[in-house]
């Protein structure tokens, strides 16, 4: 352990920038010594377990006005990065227009954690339980690089290999690790246009107990179902444990334009087991997790019949 006692005894300095731009500029200035935080729930579990150093500087995002705002704008649901998980899942607009996300959030950790933790933090961890839902909802991430804001599709971001973990950001000098997630944008269907399809969602988190557990498998489905019961469009996503969530494209392809009849279910079941390659978990085999995912997705589709 570092021998500088004075430094060791100092608690982290907490900075409270008043804008996203100021936060990112602070991060640029502090470099590896500073770390963004809001609810701090994930960071705290990591440093309590001895897996991460207590940072010297905490950049507290919760003082930034409006960063926790939840609103509908231009046909999109916009959720600020520091919106608390419980505030998201109980927000009337989220409950009504994005019930899949509300479902997913209610499965994250325990009630007290959800009172502190933020949607931005869950998303930024890349393996949070909300991420499969956001991916299924075709969400976009809004970043601030210190000068400007820009938007990135969540699928694009998730496809980046070797993304550093939250605490590793402390160490990294890579500029991509310096940017800040400011909000999440979820496209909403036009509620005033009469459509021939209806939306359908499903979310599952399976772990080693009923609640407040790390996930072994998470699955999210968002679909447009035609009057004939066939899927006009469907997105199926999967995560679980340390697995970075992905779209199960082969299963989606098999279902597009089809009803979930027995033959389709069989093919989907097989395709899911084929495409899903979970990161290893010490408490469950890959085979168990693949079969769990395939079973849960097939069962949800069967219930739609």
């Amino acid at each position: 352990m570092a021998a500088n006692l004075e430094e060791f005894l100092l608690s982290p300095a907490v900075w409270q920038p008043q804008s996203s731009g100021a936060a990112v500029r602070l991060k640029h200035a502090l470099g590896p010594l500073g770390v963004y935080t809001a609810g701090s729930t994930l960071l705290r579990t990591q440093w309590e377990a001895g897996g991460g150093k207590l940072p010297t500087h905490l950049i507290d995002l919760t003082a930034i006005p409006g960063l926790d705002r939840i609103a509908v704008q231009n046909g999109e649901l916009i959720i600020g990065a520091t919106a608390r998980l419980n505030d998201c899942s109980s927000h009337p607009v989220v409950m009504e227009r994005a019930p899949l996300l509300a479902d997913a959030i209610r499965q994250i950790a325990g009630w007290s954690v959800r009172n502190q933790a933020t949607l931005g933090g869950n998303a930024a961890s890349r393996v949070g339980d909300a991420v499969p839902a956001l991916l299924a909802l075709d969400a976009c991430l809004v970043w601030h690089d210190g000068e400007k804001q820009y938007t990135e599709h969540i699928a694009e971001w998730l496809s980046v290999q070797n993304w550093p973990g939250m605490l590793e950001w402390v160490e990294t000098r890579d500029t991509i690790g310096l940017r800040l997630l400011t909000s999440i944008r979820i496209p909403l269907p036009d509620e005033y246009t009469t459509k021939q399809t209806r939306r359908w969602f499903a979310y599952h988190k399976a772990g080693r107990r009923e609640a407040f557990m790390p996930s072994l498998v998470t699955a999210a489905v968002a679909a447009e179902v035609g009057e004939d019961g066939a899927f006009a469009d469907i997105r199926i996503t999967a995560g679980g444990g340390r697995t970075v969530p992905l779209r199960l494209t082969e299963a989606e392809r098999l279902l597009r334009g089809r009803r979930p009849e027995a033959a389709a279910l069989r093919q989907v079941h097989e395709a899911v087991r084929e495409q899903y390659v979970p990161e290893p978990d010490p408490f469950a085999t890959d085979d168990y997790r693949k079969l769990t995912l395939a079973n849960l997705i097939a069962a949800e589709l069967w219930k739609r019949k």
Partner: peptide, 11 residues
């Protein structure tokens, strides 16, 4: 749970 898990009849 792996011991009790089954491929469901629906597939």
């Amino acid at each position: 749970p792996a011991e009790l898990q089954e491929v469901p009849d629906i597939v």
